[in-house]
């Protein structure tokens, strides 16, 4: 294994200072499920890791009817997955959490680490984008809040500047008129990265779709929205013909590549299938 030095940060300020002072090739160490794999497989040069798990105040989970669900940077995938609140109010996020790696991995991996790694196939990103989540970012001069759709700038790239740390994520509250789904498609059922992941969150008012967000994973440089497909659905009764047309539009809006997991054509076809299916599943909430 490649050698690196280990630092344990006591506070956010301390972690941020270490990130800037230790120089290049210094990374925050959270659950380590991406970082340690990338070090072992020589995908990333790492000289120093800064463990943030002893920093107080980053492990909380709170829910509030106006703000929604807020969880800290250290909250593991497994902890959120097993929360009945998440099961009931965020079935889309819950589906993504339960599909991520194994129980052993989920006991260590964090949702914040999953978004900070910014993989186009990361499972927690599509449901968070479809729900319009916000990312809380600390820097030594101020705090800022960024809509998650604006957090990613490319594969593995985010808006985080040197020394900035994500402290948590807020997901807006669920409501009786909102239906949600996340569908992950891979070559096998478990221990699999997404070939395509589709999240849909939609609001229905008197049988008419008043709002909808579609988020497509693993078919672009970042998780994508499908704005034209969304526009076709908004204001409609989500009848079968409209849903099919919107799913076709989502196929046009994605920009997949071919890699070891699937060809671009196959991915595009699956976006069509899964978008239709996810809309129908989100509607089942009201059945």
């Amino acid at each position: 294994m490649r050698r690196f030095d280990y630092y344990r940060a006591e506070t956010l300020e301390h972690a941020s200072r270490l990130l800037t002072e230790l120089g290049d090739d210094t990374f925050l160490f959270n659950g380590g499920t991406d970082l340690l794999v990338e070090i072992r497989e020589r995908l990333r040069r790492v000289r120093n890791v800064v463990d943030i798990k002893q920093i107080p105040g980053l492990s909380d989970i709170t829910y509030d009817e106006t703000r929604g669900l807020t969880f800290g940077a250290l909250v593991t995938v497994g902890r959120l997955e097993n929360l009945s609140l998440v099961r009931q109010q965020y079935p889309n996020l819950r589906a993504a959490l339960a599909s991520l790696g194994s129980i052993q991995v989920r006991n260590r991996a964090t949702v914040v680490g999953n978004i900070c790694r910014a993989s186009p196939s990361a499972d927690t990103i599509p449901p968070l984008v479809a729900d319009g989540a916000f990312v809380h970012i600390y820097s030594r001069t101020d705090m800022r809040v960024v809509p998650i759709a604006e957090f990613f700038t490319g594969p593995g790239k985010t808006v985080l500047a040197k020394g900035e740390i994500v402290t948590g994520i807020t997901v807006p509250p669920a409501a009786d008129n909102i239906g949600k789904a996340y569908l992950k498609h891979g070559r096998r059922k478990a221990m699999e990265l997404s070939t395509v992941g589709v999240a849909v969150s939609l609001a229905m008012d008197e049988g008419v779709c008043s709002d909808v967000r579609i988020a497509l994973g693993a078919v672009g440089a970042t998780v994508l929205r499908a704005p034209q497909a969304e526009a076709m659905l908004r204001g409609s009764r989500l009848d079968a013909a409209t849903v099919r047309k919107a799913a076709d539009k989502a196929m046009e809006e994605c920009t997949p590549i071919s890699n070891v997991r699937a060809s671009a054509d196959y991915r595009r076809d699956m976006v069509g299938v899964l978008t239709g299916r996810a809309i129908r599943q989100a509607l089942e909430t009201f059945a």
Partner: peptide
Amino acid sequence: DVGDCGACTVLVDGEPVNACL
């Protein structure tokens, strides 16, 4: 050594984790 196989599973404070990760 990268979290895929589970051969290194141990319980830490009662919770299963990959000791390699």
